[in-house]
Nucleic acid binder design. Structure first.
Lengths: 338, 338
DNA sequence: CTGAAAGCGCTTACAG
DNA sequence: CTGAAAGCGCTTACAG
């Protein structure tokens, strides 16, 4: 900056004014400074700027497993929203959700002076650890469930699950079986809750749910288990599966058992991965708008940061924004066999 | 820090020494400072530290589309390796690969004073734009192809494709058709090259390849096109598809046409997505070790940064590290019909 | 083993 | 419209 000032024949704070677009600079001076900047290929040192302004323009993202479909999509949505708002994104993954691990990850971000943090927090343990974090770091928990006191953005998992179940019941199935995702995840819980509620509201029997772990393998194993129950006489004609990957495993298990989909058994998944539409049969599922989740999270976080800066505590406590889910009916769901 | 010093009854630079683990501090002083730090919940201001050390400990990642399987996995691998090396990761996505877009993204990172940058650079245009970036930013291009002069880490796409094709030829197919990925991607190019070379080496005819865009939909459309060619009399018994998502679309198209896999047509994909093993039939494909790609990229970048600091230009020019691909034979590939 | 001094590159009042 | 001064919170030689 000193070099630019010298070359332009002004003081270094006039250079600062030009860079920051201050109004009170003579047009001619602005031009001279601009030219000097271009000539020298000068970039403002954001570190020095952050030191004095006490704003780093960096937001943290704390994620658990970004190789899974949902978290990866959410991360992309957040990144885009952050970039559009002029923020940098610093990312940390968690290897486990132990409180110690969460604290370490949060420290990593705090140490880097992030102005706030969005946690993709799909597990109860993670949310609890976040909620008990010391210090005033503005924080938003994506899929953080309820009751933690943290501001949360989430897809309406319960509603999505209910729609899936109602869709199957409306087709004439006497009940719907359920394969849950990883039991530690809040999304598993919420989808199972919606499944149960929809059954109860319809007065349908509530069969024992099966617990998976999101992986195609677990879907396959539990699909086989349901095939076994069916062979033992249980009426299994419709399965609501916690995510699409497990649903693929279920389809495989049904196929191996010689059962037609949807002729013998209907299957509905969750997520709407790009492959879902092109499976055989195409997979009925529940779509989640992750881009919207990203935008809402960022908006909520920026609101918190702004409130923190003006000193105004958020009036109604922590915010909560819910993005609706959307059932996509495809070929894997149909009426039960006569 | 001043507060800590006051509470501990030492000067602020003794606090600095304790934080940085300098050897020449009395044990008792260390303890007193530690206690003061804990009591005050003090975190070192990394901005101030970066300003004076001229090291931010931040690495940039520039990606094109992190919602795709490969880039998402690579990003996760890089993140993990960076964290283990004590670096923060700042992430920017590109909406398009125009030179202007790349320059803007790079500026965004430079402005944040990243010490170096890993670009997940799957397209020719992106690589060219990166190679012509002004300034001395240490840079590694993942999947950056050859001839750009940039240090590159990549999976051996050519070898993976060759293995897939040789596998199919060894099963007795007289040739192998190919559905390419997005033609702008270097991976498409490399896989098509390997496919062609393996055919030529075996003296097999080289049918006209079809151009997709990585999506299941394009796989489906082009699968139907191949079904059409087959109906017109062309001998189509084996298809090497540029990625697994398109392969899913191909399987669908074959199924709709009443063609059995692998009875009538064999299919081999690329990527080994988790679903591949549980499709019906399970999908033969080529596995890529993205975690390894992440580790190698980071190692290469840290090497560059180190070289830049010591002023030693890299002796043998830009580095290049190749991670082997690995064929996974599954149910979708078998001998041709008699 | 510990402290006083200088400076990293910027911005923010304060003068003029 | 522009410049001289102070200071953001650290680290790095330099003394002692």
């Amino acid at each position: 900056m000193a070099d630019v000032a010298r070359l332009a024949g002004v003081s270094h704070q006039t250079v600062s004014r030009v860079i920051n677009g201050h109004p009170n600079v003579r047009q001619e001076t602005v031009l001279r400074v601009q030219r000097a900047i271009d000539e020298l290929g000068y970039h403002r040192n954001s570190t020095a700027r952050a030191l004095v302004t006490r704003r780093t323009n960096v937001l943290g993202v704390l994620a658990f497993d970004t190789t899974l479909f949902g978290p990866a999509q959410t991360l992309a949505g957040i990144e885009r929203a952050a970039r559009e708002a002029g923020y940098f994104l610093s990312m940390v993954s968690l290897d486990d959700v132990s409180p110690a691990g969460v604290v370490a990850a949060a420290d990593f971000l705090i140490q880097q002076s992030v102005e706030g943090c969005i946690a993709i927090a799909p597990q109860r343990g993670l949310v609890d650890a976040l909620a008990s974090l010391p210090g005033p770091l503005p924080l938003v928990a994506v899929e953080g469930g309820e009751g933690s006191g943290l501001p949360v953005v989430c897809v309406d998992q319960v509603q999505g699950a209910e729609e899936a179940v109602r869709h199957l019941l409306a087709l004439g199935h006497h009940t719907v079986h359920h394969i849950e995702g990883d039991p530690l995840w809040l999304e598993s819980e919420a989808r199972a809750f919606g499944w149960r509620r929809a059954l109860e509201e319809a007065g349908a029997p509530v069969p024992e749910p099966l617990q998976g772990d999101w992986s195609p393998r677990s879907g396959y194993d539990l699909g086989r288990a349901l095939v076994g129950r069916r062979a033992a006489g249980e009426r299994v004609t419709a399965i609501f599966v916690g995510n699409d990957q497990m649903a693929i495993g279920v389809l495989r298990a049904l196929h191996e058992a010689g059962l037609g989909v949807p002729g013998d058994v209907s299957v509905v998944g969750f997520d709407d991965i790009p492959e879902a539409e092109y499976l055989t049969p195409s997979l009925s599922t529940v779509y989640q708008d992750f881009a919207q989740v990203g935008r809402e999270s960022l908006a909520l976080l920026l609101g918190e940061i702004g409130a923190g800066r003006t000193g105004s505590a958020d009036p109604a406590g922590a915010g909560r924004r819910v993005v609706p889910a959307e059932l996509r009916q495809r070929g894997s769901s149909g009426p039960p066999p006569p």
